[in-house]
Amino acid sequence: MTNVTSALAALLGLKSGMGVEIAPEQITIAQLEKRGKGLGLKHLVTAPTPAGAVAGGRVEEPEAVAEVLRDLIADHRLKPGPVATAIPGREAVIRLIRLPADLQADELREVVLNQEAELYLPFSRNDAFVDFQPLAAAVDPDGVKRQEVLLVAAQLSVVNSYLEALRRAGLTARVVDIASFALVRALREPLAQVPPGAAVALVLLSADDTEISILLEGVPQFSRTVSLGTREFREALESTLDLPSFKAANLSRVLGDLADEIQRSLDFYQASGTTAPVPPVAQVLLAGNGANVRQIDEFLRQRLALPVSRVDPVTALGLPEISVPPGLRSGFGVALGLALRIL
């Protein structure tokens, strides 16, 4: 999302990068290194997050999180350098805006950060980290050339809660990203294979919620977070009689709710094309630990009438196939994408 320090230049030339994902269900450290023209996985370690330490999109107990990080670093003899971490999309303001195409770089920065940002923030500009990324120029339906800009913002209190946990663990954060952005970075290669003019729905299934992003050429066009995650999956299995038929019926109900929310998001996206039709969604990609639920891809494929598949960031990044078991790979996309951000 935003560079926490101005020392981005210091990152140039690094041969390894470390990503730290702090999520409600688990804390993951991924370290990638450059090997010739490719990448190697130096470390990928994880541990459960203490109950209640991460909730509501922020770190509520930084010392508890820091203790887990310190243990992971010590137990696996990690040698951390600068790290990247991420906040969940639910805590960020993400907007794709269009501005006059003739603005110079300094003018664009002034307009975005000090004028446009305030139009979209539900909190004070003084209480926010704000960043932006210029994208390609586009022509509006009325024939006017516009500069597309991706605007991202988050409250200082949210970002600082993650930074405080890292600081207590002895780690220096150089970059704070958005979880879904890190995931997209890890999936750059498969996303590049999507036919031109087709959109992709990227569904990140976390413990507390599910983030649904519609991407066009890797750029977020629409995002929505729903309060349904892997915790509901687990509760659906644990709250029934110990009979396969009851468990299957309860899980099917929860997955049905998820399918309805995804379909609702697709409908919202399609309705957003008020001046011109938006590109259709061609496929759905599942990520996060929830993507490892058995047959979730087949269930959603039937309900949504679209191709649905689990992401595999290990293969997407060209990492050794034996480094991570196939059944776990979908849950490590964010951490790997964060590590890639540092390289």
Rank of each mutant, 00 (worst) to 15 (best):
E67S: 15
V20S: 00
G197E: 02
A201T: 04
G89N: 07
V324F: 02
R168S: 08
P280N: 11
Q155W: 01
R98E: 15
A179V: 10
V159Y: 01
G36D: 12
A55G: 08
I97G: 05
A137E: 15
R253N: 12
E91L: 03
G333D: 10
S161T: 02
D257E: 14
P122M: 00
R310K: 14
G13F: 03
R90N: 06
F129E: 11
P50H: 05
L8N: 15
L205S: 01
R329G: 07
E116K: 12
K37N: 15
V83C: 05
S330T: 09
Q302K: 14
L266P: 10
D71Y: 07
P196N: 09
L205F: 03
I214R: 02
L266R: 05
T46E: 13
S16D: 13
P141L: 09
V254L: 05
D257I: 15
F332P: 07
L113S: 07
E63H: 13
I87Y: 02
V175A: 10
E189Y: 13
A316E: 07
E164S: 09
E164K: 14
K34S: 11
A138T: 14
R188W: 08
V159K: 00
P100D: 05
L119C: 07
A86S: 13
V149A: 07
L343D: 10
A84G: 10
L255S: 11
L338R: 01
Y120C: 06
V293L: 13
V65N: 11
E116Y: 06
E189D: 14
R146H: 13
G89W: 00
R294L: 13
V308Y: 08
R303I: 09
R253D: 13
E298Y: 12
E21L: 10
L215T: 05
A207Q: 13
E61W: 02
A154H: 06
F332C: 09
L44M: 09
D127I: 03
V176M: 08
E110Y: 09
P24I: 00
L163N: 07
P48G: 06
V314C: 01
G81F: 03
G327L: 08
V219R: 06
L266W: 03
A51K: 12
G36C: 13
Q193V: 07
G40A: 15
V293M: 10
F268I: 02
L121E: 02
E60G: 12
G170C: 07
P190Q: 06
P244Q: 10
G56Y: 00
V20P: 04
S206F: 00
F246H: 14
